[in-house]
Design a protein around this nucleic acid. Sequence first.
RNA 1: CGGGGAUUAGCGCAGUCUGGCAGCGCGCCUGGUUUGGGACCAGGAGGUCGCCGGUUCGAAUCCGGCAUCCCCGACCA
Length: 481
Amino acid sequence: MSQETRFVQDIADQEDDFSRWYTDVVLKAELADYSPVRGCMVIRPYGFALWENMRDALDSRIKATGHVNAYFPLFIPESLLKKEAEHVEGFNPEVAWVTAAGDEDLEERLAIRPTSEVMILTMYSKWVQSWRDLPLLINQWANVVRWEKRTHMFLRTTEFLWQEGHTAHRTEQEAQEEVLRMLEVYRDFVETELAIPLVLGRKSESEKFAGAQATYTIEAMMGDGRALQAGTSHGFGQHFAEAFNISFLDMDGERRNAWTTSWGMTTRLIGALIMTHGDASGLILPPRVAPHQVVVIPIFRKDDEEERVREAINEITQRLAGQVRLHVDWSEHTPGWKFNEWELRGVPIRLEIGPRDVAAGQATVVRRDTREKQAVPLGELATRLPALLDDIQHALFERALAFRESRTHQISSIDELAAQIEQERGFFWAVWCGSAACETAVKTRTGATLRCLPLEGGDGVGPCLVCGQSGGKTAIFARAY
RNA sequence: CGGGGAUUAGCGCAGUCUGGCAGCGCGCCUGGUUUGGGACCAGGAGGUCGCCGGUUCGAAUCCGGCAUCCCCGACCA
């Protein structure tokens, strides 16, 4: 990249080494840092402010759909965890255990929750007696621990923060509606707030959650063409209700098992945000969740200039209070240094105020995504800035969507997939017969996994990309994080 | 968990092969000049050389173990 556009030299080149670029951005933008604990990171104040904005936007949507928040214990007694065989087997290798307190061994080991189905559904069995107790719609914001072999900042860490919703319903249809409703809530949240375009779909048998009857997913494409699962919604049928005895007397006097669901979204989304919108200069944050939406850079030479600039900035701050999240950088770095710094940290709009601007009664406004520069009269900032933030939000989505389209291909055979994915990563739509053997064949040969069976688009007409049989479904294959 | 690489000042690195005073650039502190795309001059501070042990008169350097990070794979959602 040329020197004119590449101002930041201390992060790796995106095309050259995407993985290194990602790590550099996370560290240099001060989103997170490594900790002395393997696989565990520290989310720094800037990263946490971002997470808080994301969390609040999702939380209000969860509440708007009738759910309430609660909090359940971090520890799960071993005997409880073992109640649902398929579930425990799925998570077993990743579970961390507490075996002692002080010098005394515990009588029963305690698992540190990898997820809370077991704990929450155990409580539900106490709370559900009648059909009138249903539906039960509870969400919790919590940390969970999964002992992953290989970790990566935000994308896969040993401990992470998330939201897990757990619901119980009277009928299968209600539960199914809930699973899809929350998938839609996720879509709205991710596309509206994070400006990340999604594909909604169902997971194959081999990819679904341990113990689930059906797993639905939202899949996003990262800047290197790889897929990232950004959230999931599971239907459990009556499977868990049987294991945990969540039964109720129905309207007709019959005792029945409830239908349960769960759905979750994690700090991994921060990784998705970075890898979807970032560029050669670093992070680009969507205005709706950016900790600072506008950063103000004062420019002056002499004391009298500083005085006038300060006055103008005070006036701007007052005028914009409550309208935009604004940060004034009064630090002693030079303006050029600040430009680079705040670009690296992804602030959507930079506002420069210097003597020339003050004299003209204007501010110089620069947007992060295009670097387009314009002079805006001070009196118009209160209307122009929110409009510009809106504009950037939409432009980011459109750009990400256009990128995904350019990397999405229809393919008809595994040979074609192998050849194309070697050239360039992306999403590959194909017809798949539904057999696990063909799914495995694709993974072994191409490194791509079956991301989902999309809910929209794809008619499933044609021969399976591996075995050639007809009567299959449309599936999306991609290399994934 | 397997293979490879790394760990030296806040950050990036040289020094390790061939054992002998702890170095460079950036950053940081003080003073001054500066400030519209990573300013300049002068002075200064900052190190258990990742940790534990061994060899040696002497270890950043050689040997053994461990920890953390990165890359590739296996595993996992």
